[in-house]
């Protein structure tokens, strides 16, 4: 092994480790719902290459309004899926789309883009 091979190997393994840590194990941005005067839990979510925040905490048994603002034209994020709530919604670009839910059970429910690449979680407590 010459020196450049050693450098490439170490750099490659380090990069691979970084990819694994960064995408699977690093901390996520969490937001708790804000209850409006009417008892409705509201959360604003920006959609741009992902969902921010991507972990949303709400209380069970109270209506939830999720305002998805899609801040891009990229086709990846054009659909929103919340299979546990039977939601498939088109998110028009640069507009806010309202999704209303009434979570009855506690648990973690994923929401994704149409192809399951962009991911977020609704945590019902």
């Amino acid at each position: 092994m010459d020196s450049s091979e050693i450098i490439v190997t170490i750099a490659g393994l380090a990069l691979a480790a970084f990819v694994v840590w960064y995408f699977f194990f690093s901390a996520r941005q969490t937001a708790s719902a804000v209850s409006s005067s009417g008892g409705v839990q509201e959360v604003d979510i920006t959609v741009k290459g992902g969902y921010s925040p991507d972990v949303i905490e709400v209380e069970r048994g109270k209506p939830v309004q999720l305002h998805f603002y899609r801040d891009e034209e990229n086709s990846c994020s054009e659909e929103l899926l919340m299979p546990d709530f039977s939601v498939r919604r088109d998110l028009p670009a640069f507009q806010t789309t309202l999704v209303e839910l009434l979570p009855q059970e506690a648990g973690r429910f994923d929401f994704t883009c149409g192809m399951g690449m962009l991911r977020g979680t609704l945590v019902v407590k």
């Binding site: 995408f23 741009k48 290459g49 992902g50 990229n74 990846c76 883009c113 192809m115 690449m117 991911r119």
Partner: peptide, 19 residues
């Protein structure tokens, strides 16, 4: 361009997609 902007936006959200 869309591939690069989407990949970058995804990277910032710690998500990766086809782009």
């Amino acid at each position: 361009r869309e591939f690069y902007s989407s990949a970058w936006n995804g990277f910032r959200h710690r998500s990766a997609n086809m782009d």
